[in-house]
């Protein structure tokens, strides 16, 4: 029983990171039709920023999180302007550019951090919340989850309640129709990429005190983000959030009761199955051929 509840909590906390990373990927794909393969690396840059500024140079933690988000958003904007925009007509072109960026960012991280062991960031919020004498949640995780959930809430507000959010969704649905209505699709791409990258950066910054930081940490992030994206339905943001929670719970439970590798393998298999049975994902619209 204890283990069940603890696993539940572990899974829900994990879902916050998954959702932050996946929502950005979905947003970028939705608006720009580009698969950003470097999305995991954007997360990695967020984590490295916190390590470099906070752990190495004693900048206050919250300030470094903000800096990391801004930095990664700027990388995203540069990618949009100089790589994805010239490649608008070739979806594969954008993907390949992002693979190039992936390598460049990994090397940049190695140059900043040097080779050697994974980097560690001492958690700024120490201690563990103990509930009912059985449930244990480190404050650092609680903090990360709270920030992730708040951010996702703000994004939802932005997309559904603000004009510009409406415009963004219009472009995602039909780029041509949107531009006929006078929506500047380039501007929307910039916003999507900026927001998407910022969220990846935030995910990385929040993860930093909780994980091994190394130049290759983005690999696991992108696999998870792909799975969540497909399961949730490509282009569906609510789908991505729900899929994040489901997948995080699934993965955490399988890891707890079986094994981590089995959890990832079955996640990948489920993703392929969903591609076959319902390519539009659990919440996506039916794709018309």
């Amino acid at each position: 029983m204890e283990l069940l509840v603890q696993t539940m909590v572990n899974g829900i906390i994990q879902s916050g990171f998954y959702a932050l990373a996946a929502v950005g990927l979905v947003l970028i794909f939705g608006v720009m039709k580009v698969v950003n393969f470097a999305h995991g690396e954007l997360t990695m840059v967020g984590a490295y920023s916190v390590w470099f500024l906070h752990a190495q140079n004693d900048m206050p933690f919250l300030l470094t999180v903000v800096t990391a988000v801004v930095l990664v958003a700027m990388i995203g904007l540069l990618m949009e302007r100089f790589l994805f925009r010239p490649m608008t007509d070739s979806p594969l072109g954008g993907l390949i550019c992002s693979i190039g960026v992936l390598f460049v960012l990994q090397v940049a991280a190695t140059l900043v951090g040097g080779e050697g062991p994974s980097k560690q960031v001492p958690p700024p919020y120490e201690g563990t919340l103990v509930l009912f004498d059985m449930l244990r949640i480190p404050y650092q995780r609680l903090f990360s989850f709270a920030v992730a959930a708040t951010t996702l809430g703000l994004l939802w507000y932005f997309l559904t309640r603000m004009r510009i959010g409406w415009a963004l969704r219009a472009v995602a649905q039909d780029r041509e129709a949107a531009s006929l209505q006078g929506i500047n699709s380039n501007r929307m791409s910039m916003i999507a990429m900026g927001v998407g990258a910022a969220m990846a950066g935030l995910a990385g910054a929040l993860m930093a005190p909780l994980t091994n930081i190394n130049p290759h940490m983005g690999h696991n992030v992108i696999i998870t983000a792909f799975i969540v994206t497909i399961v949730g339905g490509v282009g569906s943001l609510p789908g991505a959030v729900i899929a994040s929670v489901l997948y995080a719970l699934f993965h955490t439970f399988v890891t707890t009761y079986f094994s981590g590798t089995i959890a990832t393998i079955s996640g990948l298999v489920i993703m392929v199955l969903i591609l076959i049975v319902r390519p539009s994902g659990i919440l996506g619209k039916r794709v018309t051929e």
Binding site: P86, I96, C97, G100, V101, F103, Q106
Partner: peptide, 19 residues
């Protein structure tokens, strides 16, 4: 260590200028 970055840059330059 910087070899992969050179690869990445070459890839980007090619897809942009010599697709």
């Amino acid at each position: 260590v910087i070899r992969p970055a050179v690869y990445g840059a070459v890839l980007i330059l090619f897809i942009l200028y010599l697709p």
